Amino acid sequence: MAAAQKRPPLPAILLANDLLDGDVVFAAAGAEGALAWTRDPAEALVAGDDAAAERLEDYAASQLGTNRVVDAYLVDVTVEAGEPVPRHYRERMKTLGPSNRPDLGKQAGDGVGTGRRA
């Protein structure tokens, strides 16, 4: 019998890697209540309860089957200034972009998000 995968503490967001370009993408609210992927971490849908987290996990499972994304998983976050910010260093770096070039990537406001997460 396989052990159930442990869910991170809530609130949480769903992140994955896009298979076409390798960029980190986040599950966000799409048209008519559907979910969609976005490259902007500020648009990530935040799951604050078990039902919302399960919805994100179900979306991840459906998307992995389409070969659109890989390595989809929930990440625990805090909400700062209305935007989700990952609690752990690894995921925070994924939301920002290259750590060796703060003038590039999402933290530089490279057309995505606000760029305030430096």
Rank of each mutant, 00 (worst) to 15 (best):
31 A>Y: 07
35 L>F: 08
37 W>Q: 10
102 P>H: 08
35 L>M: 06
113 G>V: 02
34 A>W: 06
20 L>G: 00
71 D>S: 13
111 G>Q: 02
56 L>C: 05
31 A>D: 09
115 G>V: 02
108 A>F: 02
73 Y>I: 09
94 K>M: 15
4 A>E: 15
97 G>C: 10
8 P>T: 09
86 P>E: 10
98 P>A: 14
27 A>H: 07
106 K>W: 06
86 P>K: 10
33 G>M: 00
78 T>M: 13
96 L>D: 10
75 V>D: 09
88 H>V: 15
54 E>D: 08
42 A>S: 00
39 R>Q: 03
22 G>L: 04
37 W>T: 06
33 G>T: 07
62 S>Y: 00
102 P>D: 13
34 A>M: 03
70 V>F: 15
70 V>Q: 15
40 D>T: 04
73 Y>T: 13
79 V>A: 01
63 Q>K: 11
67 N>I: 00
23 D>S: 12
106 K>V: 12
19 L>I: 09
49 D>G: 08
16 A>T: 04
118 A>L: 15
1 M>D: 12
19 L>K: 13
80 E>K: 11
99 S>W: 15
12 A>G: 04
101 R>H: 14
43 E>W: 04
108 A>D: 01
16 A>S: 12
30 G>Y: 07
29 A>K: 07
70 V>R: 14
35 L>C: 08
114 T>A: 12
61 A>N: 10
108 A>T: 05
45 L>F: 08
55 R>T: 08
112 V>Q: 01
115 G>L: 00
88 H>R: 15
56 L>I: 06
40 D>H: 03
24 V>D: 01
103 D>E: 11
113 G>S: 02
78 T>E: 14
118 A>H: 13
112 V>W: 08
41 P>Q: 02
14 L>I: 00
66 T>Q: 05
63 Q>C: 12
12 A>K: 06
53 A>D: 02
3 A>S: 04
108 A>N: 05
4 A>C: 10
39 R>W: 01
70 V>N: 14
80 E>A: 11
36 A>M: 05
96 L>P: 00
82 G>T: 02
65 G>P: 03
60 A>L: 04
7 R>Y: 06
115 G>Y: 00
74 L>T: 13
92 R>Y: 14
84 P>V: 00
83 E>H: 03
31 A>S: 14
76 D>S: 14
48 G>L: 05
31 A>N: 04
8 P>F: 06
27 A>S: 13
54 E>T: 01
87 R>C: 15
99 S>I: 15
64 L>I: 04
78 T>L: 12
94 K>W: 11
45 L>H: 01
49 D>N: 14
23 D>N: 01
105 G>F: 03
69 V>E: 04
28 A>F: 01
54 E>V: 07
60 A>F: 00
59 Y>E: 05
89 Y>N: 15
84 P>I: 08
114 T>C: 03
78 T>P: 00
80 E>N: 08
85 V>W: 10
42 A>W: 02
55 R>Y: 09
109 G>K: 09
9 P>R: 10
40 D>S: 07
3 A>K: 11
76 D>K: 05
9 P>G: 10
